[in-house]
Design a binder for these strands. Structure first.
Lengths: 128, 128
DNA sequence: TTCGTTGCAAACATTTTGCAGTTTC
DNA sequence: GAAACTGCAAAATGTTTGCAACGAA
C-alpha cells in the first residue's frame, strides 16, 4: 500500500486547477504557477495531473486540439469547444445523460463506463 | 480558386481509409500502404488526411489516446473506445442526436455546429 | 529515516513544414 | 508549362522518464 504525500507543489497545482474554470492544460498551469514557484518543473505538473486523475480528483478532457485539458470538477458534464477562440466552456444547462449509456449498453452489448460529449461551435463572444 | 489534383497517392490513401472500418491513424494507413507504395511518405498521408477532412470526405475522431483517428464515413455517428484493446468501434444502434444540439444551442446561446460523443468501456471480446 | 516527490534534461511520440523534384491536368 | 503534390528529413509540439537530490511523514 503506497503512501501518499502532499508536497507543496501538489497542493498548489490542485488549488490552481480547482480555482480555474478554463479547463487548463499542463503548460498553462505551469506558466501560472511559475510566478509563485519559480523552481517548479513542467514534469511535476504532468505527474500531478495524472495523479489527480488516478485518484478521481480530476478528469482529463480531450477535444482534439492536441493538448490535454484538465478539470477538477469530476462530476460528468458536457463542454463546448469554441472553434474561433479555442475556449473550452462548461455546458451546465444539459444534464449528463446516464440513460444514453444504459440504452447503448443494452443495444450493443458493450460494457459502458462513461461517455464524453463535446459540442463544437461558437461561444457568445465569437458568434458576433 | 485552387485546382485539385488526384495523385495516385491521394487515391490510394482515400481507398484505404474507405475500406477500413477500424478508424485508422495516419501511421497505420502508412504502414499498410507502404507495401504497395514503398516510396510513400508519412507526411503525404497526414497532408491528405487533412485534405479529406477539409473537403468533407473524412472526419477526424479524437478519443484521447494521443493519436488522430480518421473515418471516411462522414455521416455523424457515435463510437465506443474499448479501454482494454483500444479498438474504436462504430455505434450504429443509436441515432445521432441533432435535437440535443438544437436544445443546447437554445439553452446556452452558443452556435453549435456539431457534437462528438464517445463511449468508454469494453467491447464484446474484452468484456469477458 | 524512509521512500514518495521533485527538478532537470534527455528521450520519446506524434504531427507539421520547407524545399527541391515530380506529376497532374 | 503551371501549379499542385510528393518524398525526405528536419523541426516543432506535447508528453514521459531516469536519476540524483530533496522533503514530508
Amino acid at each position: 500500500m503506497k503512501q501518499i504525500r502532499f508536497s507543496k507543489q501538489r497542493k498548489a497545482i490542485y488549488e490552481a486547477l480547482k480555482n480555474s474554470d478554463s479547463h487548463p492544460t499542463a503548460e498553462l498551469l505551469y506558466q501560472q504557477l511559475k510566478e509563485e514557484y519559480p523552481e517548479l518543473s513542467l514534469g511535476t505538473v504532468y505527474r500531478n495531473l495524472h495523479f489527480f486523475v488516478n485518484e478521481n480528483q480530476a478528469v482529463r478532457i480531450d477535444v482534439g486540439d492536441q493538448v490535454e485539458h484538465y478539470d477538477a470538477v469530476v462530476m460528468p458534464h458536457y463542454h463546448l469547444y469554441c472553434q474561433s477562440c479555442n475556449a473550452l466552456i462548461d455546458v451546465h444547462e444539459e444534464d449528463y445523460n446516464y440513460d444514453l449509456e444504459k440504452r447503448v449498453a443494452k443495444k450493443t452489448g458493450y460494457d459502458i463506463d462513461s461517455h464524453s460529449t463535446i459540442f463544437y461551435g461558437l461561444c457568445h463572444k465569437c458568434k458576433n
